[in-house]
Simulated scan of single mutants.
Amino acid sequence: MAQVLKEEVRNRILEAAEKVFYKRDYRGAKLTEIAKEADIPVALIYTYFKNKEVLFDAVVSSVYINFESAFDEEESLEKGSASERFDEVGENYIHELLKERKKLIILMDKSSGTKHTEAKQKLISQMQVHIEVSLKRQSKQEYDPMLAHILASNFTEGLLEIARHYQSEKWAKDMLKLIARCYYKGVESL
């Protein structure tokens, strides 16, 4: 029984912290506000989390994913165009990520002052390498690496815009399909 209560309190703290970090960001969030949101004394937070940074890590840990594994899986597919490989692997991976969109936004937009400050740049860098691999696979022409960087930045920001303005799962899937189509085939494909 005590273990269930401990888990319930820990979950309340995490849920409250997610709300506060989403609203304020890491630097603006106060443990007193998180405790108030969780309806617990501030001292109880320290029973579960050493400090605010450890609490922040716990909130974002489920979305602090390594995109490289998804990119590797997509690149390992021997057949299909880049867009077909994305449809088979990447799209599902992104939909899973969007299920925790608030945590994704906290990690990417609200982590200044933590060890995760560079999370968005890390994602862009990983995506840039993935795009460079795809360009080499699809085309005999060599491109300036800045092209892959710009595409990676734009796709990452598009994904974050879907997360920021999320309306429903269907809306997100439809929007992702449109962005991917534009990304792979150009605006004229619409």
Rank of each mutant, 00 (worst) to 15 (best):
116 H>F: 10
78 E>Y: 11
116 H>W: 04
101 R>F: 05
51 N>Y: 04
75 E>H: 06
84 E>V: 08
70 A>Q: 06
75 E>N: 01
96 E>P: 02
111 S>E: 13
100 E>L: 10
111 S>I: 01
84 E>Q: 07
118 E>M: 15
45 I>C: 08
82 A>M: 10
98 L>H: 10
48 Y>M: 03
60 V>T: 00
59 V>D: 12
60 V>G: 04
70 A>I: 12
103 K>S: 02
52 K>E: 04
120 K>V: 10
123 L>R: 05
50 K>G: 01
46 Y>G: 14
65 I>R: 15
69 S>H: 04
41 P>R: 13
64 Y>Q: 02
55 L>N: 09
113 G>F: 08
106 I>A: 02
120 K>L: 12
78 E>L: 15
56 F>G: 03
88 E>K: 13
56 F>C: 02
62 S>T: 12
95 H>D: 02
58 A>D: 13
96 E>S: 06
76 S>A: 13
87 D>N: 15
125 S>V: 02
54 V>Q: 09
92 N>L: 05
77 L>R: 10
70 A>K: 06
71 F>Q: 04
100 E>N: 14
68 E>W: 00
66 N>K: 12
64 Y>M: 13
121 Q>Y: 07
92 N>W: 00
76 S>P: 14
48 Y>E: 14
109 D>N: 01
41 P>C: 05
108 M>Q: 04
124 I>L: 00
44 L>D: 02
64 Y>G: 08
98 L>E: 10
101 R>H: 14
127 M>H: 07
125 S>W: 01
109 D>C: 11
90 G>K: 05
82 A>K: 13
60 V>W: 07
117 T>D: 09
59 V>L: 15
48 Y>F: 09
52 K>I: 12
57 D>Y: 11
